[in-house]
Design a protein around this nucleic acid. Sequence first.
DNA 1: TTGAAAGCGGTACCAC
DNA 2: GTGGTACCGCTTTCAA
Lengths: 387, 387
Amino acid sequence: MMRNRSQYFSVKKRRISKSRPRQSAGIKEIAAKLNVSIGTVDRALHGRPGIKPETAAKVLKTAEALGYRPNVAARLLKLNRRLVISVHLPSEIAAFFDLLRSSIVEAAGPFDSSVELRFRTYPTLEEGDVEAFEKALREHVDGIIMAPGNPRKLQPLIAQASERGVPVVCVATDAPATERLASVSADAHVGGAMAAELLTRCVRESGPVLVLTGNLRVVDHTEKLRGFSERLNAMQSALHVVPVLETHDHPAEADRKTRESIARYPDLKAVYVTTANSLPVLDALERTGHLGKVSIVTTDLFPALAPYIRSGAVLASIYQRPQTQGRVAFEALYRYLTERKVPPRVYPLPPHLVMQSNLDLFLDLQAMGYEKAEGAMLMKANARARS
Amino acid sequence: MMRNRSQYFSVKKRRISKSRPRQSAGIKEIAAKLNVSIGTVDRALHGRPGIKPETAAKVLKTAEALGYRPNVAARLLKLNRRLVISVHLPSEIAAFFDLLRSSIVEAAGPFDSSVELRFRTYPTLEEGDVEAFEKALREHVDGIIMAPGNPRKLQPLIAQASERGVPVVCVATDAPATERLASVSADAHVGGAMAAELLTRCVRESGPVLVLTGNLRVVDHTEKLRGFSERLNAMQSALHVVPVLETHDHPAEADRKTRESIARYPDLKAVYVTTANSLPVLDALERTGHLGKVSIVTTDLFPALAPYIRSGAVLASIYQRPQTQGRVAFEALYRYLTERKVPPRVYPLPPHLVMQSNLDLFLDLQAMGYEKAEGAMLMKANARARS
DNA sequence: TTGAAAGCGGTACCAC
DNA sequence: GTGGTACCGCTTTCAA
C-alpha cells in the first residue's frame, strides 16, 4: 500500500519566525575566543584525558560565560546510536500491563529515532523477571524498566547493573533497598487510605470490613493494608478489619475465602479488594445476595468491572494509572540517559478514584490507550516484516 | 560561579550495545537504489516542486518499501531553527497558573535546544488574552498555548492563526467552536458530577445544597453545574440545589452571598464551590458556626485550603491538575509541529479528588512543581543576564 | 527536471 | 597536549 507523503512529516514551508538560529554559543565560539581548537574544547567539556588542567579550566570558564549549551541534535547525529531500553513486564493482569507497555511506546514516540525499546515479557510477576534481567545485562542495554516481582533475587543483579552504569527504573511495584535509579508506582499506602476514607464516609453502620489481598510478601500489598488500617483508626471509623485474606491472585481461592468470610461474619458491612483479582469476590457476594448490601472498594479498572461500578454495587475502584506509570518511568530514564538528570528516587503517583461519575471518562481513556497500543504493535510488525 | 562539568551532560563512555546505527534506510539508500540523487529523493518525499510525477511516485514507493524514517536529529541540525511557542496565561489564581506555566517549562526540557518558549502574562483571565494573541501573531510564532478568557473575541483571531498555519492549543478552559488544534482541561462536567456523587454518598439527611460559581458565561463553570445537577438527579440524591450564586471570583461578593444564603436556608446540608475562590466561603461558614456541620466540596488546591481538608471540614476538593494540563498541552503542540501528528480535539482530564488520605501527597507534588518552576526561572534569568 | 555539494554542531581519530 | 579534519543525514542552493 502507498504511504501518504505527509507521513514523513515534512516540516513544510512555514512563515518563519526570525528567531536567531542559536541562543547560546557553540563549541566553535568557545574555541575561537580562546584561540584553541575545537578538539581541545571538546576534551575540556567532557573531561577527557590528554588536556592540561589549566586549559580545561579556562575552557570551562569560557563555556560558562558564554552560556554554552550542547546541541543535542548534532550530538545525536554524530553519535548516531540509539539508546537501547529494555522493558521487562509480565503479561499477567493484561489489563494493567498492556496499558503500561503501550504507554511506554507512546512516550518514546518523539524519540523514535534515538531510542530502541526491547520488550521482554514473561507469564507472571513472579516468574521470569530474573532471567529477563540477566539477558538484558548480557546484551549490554543502556537502561532497564521493570516490574520487580522478586526484589530479593534481583537485588544483586540491580547492583551489578548499577556498577556497570546501567540505570534501572522500577514500575508497578518497588524493589526498595536496591541500587535502582527510580521507582514509579501508585502510592500504595495512600491507595489503601483512600479506600478506608471512602468506606468510612459512606458506610452508615458499624461492623466488620473484609480485606482481600494478593500476597503479603509483596510490599505493594502490605502497604495498602497499612494505609487502610491507619486511616480507619485516624478517622475512628465504625468499621473494623477482620483477618486479612490472601488470594494469591487465584480466582478459585478468592471465591472460596470470600464465601467462608461471609458465613463467618454475617453482619459484614464492607469489602476492600487490594488487587485486580476482584471478580471472583464480586461473584461470590452476588450469589450470596450481598451485592448492593455491603459497600465495596476494588482496585484497578478493566471492562468486566465497569458494570459493577456503573450500577453502584462497587462504590469505587482505586485506579493505579498504568499509563501514567509507563510515561513517567520512560521519561525519567530517558532524561537520565541523555542529560544525566537524576530523577527523584520515588515517584508516588496519587491513585485515582473511579466512581459512577467518572467511569465513562476512564473507560474512554483506556480505550485510547489500547488503540495506540495496536497502532504501535502494527508498526513493529511491519518493521519486522520489512527487514 | 563555576559550573560543574557534568552539567554539560556529556554522554560518557559506556559499553556500547551493538545495535545497528540505523534501523531503516536513509535518503541515500533510496537514492542509490533508484540511481537518482538525494536531492531528487528529498523533493519527492516532501512534495516539493520541480520533479516529474513518475519519479516522485517511484521514490515514494521505494521509501515505503525500505521503511524509510527521517532522521530527526539530522533535520533539526540542518534546519537549525527553534520552534517558537507562545504561552498566554493570566497571573491571577497564581496557585493554578504558576503550576501550569512551570509544567510547560518542564515538559519542554528535553527539547530545550529546539524549542523557545515565550511567556506572555496578563493580570486576569478576562483581560489581556486578546492583546497577547495579536502580539504573538505579529511575531510569527510557530504555535500558541493559551487560556481563552474571551472565547468570543478570540474566535476570529484563532481563525486567522489557523489560516496562517499557526496551531493553537487551549488550556484551563476551552474556546469551543473555534479553529483551535486542541483543548486540554479538566473535564468540568465530570468534576461537577464527582462533587455530587461524593456529597450524595456522604450526607445522611435531605436538604438544600448551595452552589457557588464564578461566572455563568464561562463554559467551564456552567458545565460543572450541569454535571452536578445531573448526577444529583441520577442518584436520586436527598440533596437539592438552591439557586446558584455567582461570585465573579470576588472574595467580598462570595462572603456576602454565602452569609445571605445561610440566613435563607438554615437547614443547609452541603456546599459546593466550583472555583478556587473558596476561602471567603469557608470563612463565612466558620464565623456562623457552620463549619463541620455542612459537607463541603471545593475546587483546586492551594496551601490555605489544606488545613480545611486535613481537619475534615472540607470533605474533598476537585483538583484540576494544572501540571498535567501544561504537559499534555505542550506535548500535543510539539508533536503537531514536528511530526504533524494531529491530537484529539479535546483532552478531558479526569479531575482528582483531594481528601484527607491523599492531601499530603498532593501537597508534595505541588511543592515539587514550584521547585522546578524556580529552577526554570533562574535559568531564564541567567540566560538573559548573559546575552 | 535533475545532480552535486556545502554545511548545520558536535565527536573521534590521526598527526604533530 | 593540541590542532586539524572527516563525517553523521538531511536541507538547500546553484549549476547543468
